[in-house]
Structure formats: structure tokens, C-alpha cells
């Protein structure tokens, strides 16, 4: 039987950094929406401060970050730090983009919950969120 929760998970997806490659973030945003999540896409060139602002304003439980320029080691931890500064560490941060394997472990240590690299099936991202928020997800 389908589990229906009062409040579906809200996810802010954002492009941090200067690059404008938004193919990935848009595909993921659509897939998450189709999977029953409430998705807010911020658009391009968001600073860590802007991303956290959006997440707090939207009362989001999750932030999804996308980057293709190679600045992930600076900008992903900066989002985590901004959440700490704003006392909002309950918000889960995940990310994706052109991110070499070696960097993934380092990012996880810095508080990024998960990194999805090129070639990841969309279902894998959805499954990960379902596991993370089992009660709150609306089954499609």
C-alpha cells in the first residue's frame, strides 16, 4: 500500500560557482519532481550564502548542488559551513558533477552526505533520498 505523508520532502537544487552547464541539474530536478519531491531550482551562479538563504526560505530539508567547473572542493564545503553558521545543519547536502573519486571522500568528510558522478542512474539518486527520508516521501 502506498505510504502517504503529510509533507513531501522539499529539495533546493542549485548551480554553485561560475559555470553555466545546467543540463545535469535540470535533468535531476525533473526526475526528483517526477518521483514526488517538491523541487525548487535556484538557477545559475549561486553563492553558498544564496543557496542557504533559498533553503531556509523554502523550508527545505535537502540541498542538491551541481558544478562542472572544478571548484567543488571550495564551494561544496562552503555551503556546509554556511549551514553551520546559520544553525541549519539538519539540512542534508548532496552534490553532483565532474568530481574525481579522490575528492569524494574528502567532501564527505567535510559534511557532504553524498556525491553522484556522471553516469549515475536517476533512480539511484531517488533511492538514496527514499532511504534518507523514508517516512516523508510520497510514493508515486
Amino acid at each position: 500500500m502506498a505510504k502517504v505523508a503529510a509533507k513531501p520532502v522539499r529539495i533546493v537544487v542549485a548551480k554553485v560557482g561560475l559555470d553555466g552547464h545546467d543540463r545535469g541539474v535540470k535533468v535531476v530536478a525533473r526526475a526528483l519532481r517526477d518521483a514526488g519531491y517538491e523541487v525548487i531550482y535556484t538557477g545559475l551562479r549561486q553563492t553558498p550564502e544564496m543557496v542557504v538563504d533559498a533553503a531556509l526560505q523554502e523550508d527545505a530539508q535537502v540541498i542538491g548542488l551541481s558544478i562542472h567547473s572544478g571548484a567543488h572542493m571550495t564551494l561544496f564545503p562552503a555551503v556546509v559551513d554556511e549551514l553551520k553558521r546559520r544553525d541549519a545543519t539538519d539540512i542534508v547536502v548532496f552534490g553532483g558533477g565532474i568530481i574525481p573519486d579522490d575528492d569524494i571522500a574528502a567532501l564527505k568528510k567535510r559534511g557532504v552526505a553524498e556525491i553522484f558522478t556522471p553516469g549515475t542512474p536517476l533512480q539511484e539518486i531517488v533511492d538514496w533520498l527514499r532511504k534518507r527520508f523514508p517516512e516523508q516521501t510520497r510514493k508515486p
Binding site: 553563492t47 572542493m73 564551494l75
Partner: peptide
Amino acid sequence: DMPTLMGQDSDAPTSRGEVGHC
């Protein structure tokens, strides 16, 4: 690199983490 493509100098605050990367 991205700062050059976006018309900003390497010491601009929004160039952080991007200089010389792509």
C-alpha cells in the same frame, strides 16, 4: 578559466576556487 570567461579578475570574491581550473 571560468573567471576569465565570466569577465572577472582572479582576485574577485566569486572567483574563489575557480582560478585556473577549467
